[in-house]
Each structure stands twice: as C-alpha cells, then as structure tokens.
Design a protein around this nucleic acid. Sequence first.
DNA 1: GTTAGGG
DNA 2: CCCTAAC
Length: 190
Amino acid sequence: MGNGASGDVGIGHVGINSWEDGDLNTSSLSFQRRERSQKPEICMEDEVEEYSSDGSEDEVVKKKFKKGGDRRKHQRMWTLSEATKLVDGISQFGVGRWTQIKRLSFSASAHRTPIDLRDKWRNLLRASYAQTPTKGGIEEENSGRSLPKYLLHQVRELASLHPYPRKDASRSLFLGQKGVDGRSVRRSNA
DNA sequence: GTTAGGG
DNA sequence: CCCTAAC
C-alpha cells in the first residue's frame, strides 16, 4: 500500500505484476507515451487472467501465452469488473465525464486513461446496438464471448438515457444510485 | 486540459 | 491503442 492507488485491486496470484500502480511517467515531454505496449515481457509459464470469481477485481495484462504459442504483444483485456465499473461510473456521474470517472471509480487503475474509458464505452455501445436482433431472421446470438445481458442492458439504458449530458451528471439516476456525490459539475481544470 | 472522432 | 481536432 505504498501508493494510494492500490485500494481494491487485489492481485495476490502472481507476484510479478509489479506494474500495477505507481505512475512511472518519465515526467518528460518526450516520453508522454507512458509505457504502454512496452510492458516488461515476463516470460512466465502461464499467465492466466483469472479473478477471484466474486468480488476481487481483476488486473492483468492479456498475455496468455502457453508453452507452444508465444503470443506477446497483445492488448489489454477489459474485463467484466472493469466494464461494470465503467458503466457504474457513467451511471453515477454521466456519460462524458471520463476524467471524473477515472478519478473516482478508476482511481486504483494505473492504466486506462479517460480516453480509454471512452473507447471502451464506444465498443460497448456497438455491442449494445448490435444485440437483440431476435427478429427477422438474423440471429446474432452471443457466442458467449460478449458481455452478459444485464451489462448490455445497462449500457443500453445509459445510452438511451443520455448520449452525453454536458449539463448535469447527477440526478435522474435510478440504475444504481449508490450515493450521488454532492460535488457540482464545476470541476474546472488547472 | 478534456472530450470527441477517426485511423 | 494512438493521433488529431475542437471545445
């Protein structure tokens, strides 16, 4: 718990993931690219993306290369917990508040920039839009690879509720009102 | 500085 | 995921 970032992220499986928290930014103008796509390639036997099955968050790079198929250089996989947290954050503050969401809901995430959240939301929207065609004849049933139905439903609700309310982020919520923060939407920048 | 859109 | 443009 050296950094305030580590709060709920419980990675107790492997002790190699040290690149969890701690902004290792070079603080320079030249290297603003962080160390994305350049993660320390630790060739371990098998790095499986496994969660604690219930409440523990997940945080592991998609580097599942077994003994026979070295497939490094992959992207990060957004998991259900992250998608849930994203949808949850949006349900709390509203769409288009990535910076705020990242600061509150993803404060423990070293990676995933506000832009990343928006990117994932875009993909989620695409999935929520391409679902439920159970009529007509085109059955694009989920191959079980996509997100759960309830998640898709939440995404659809949020998308239908407000595309991107640049006015207010609080109130008008009923999906999972966990406690609307009293912070005004006037969070100007530096 | 942040959000939005496209590659 | 990364870059660019607009707000």
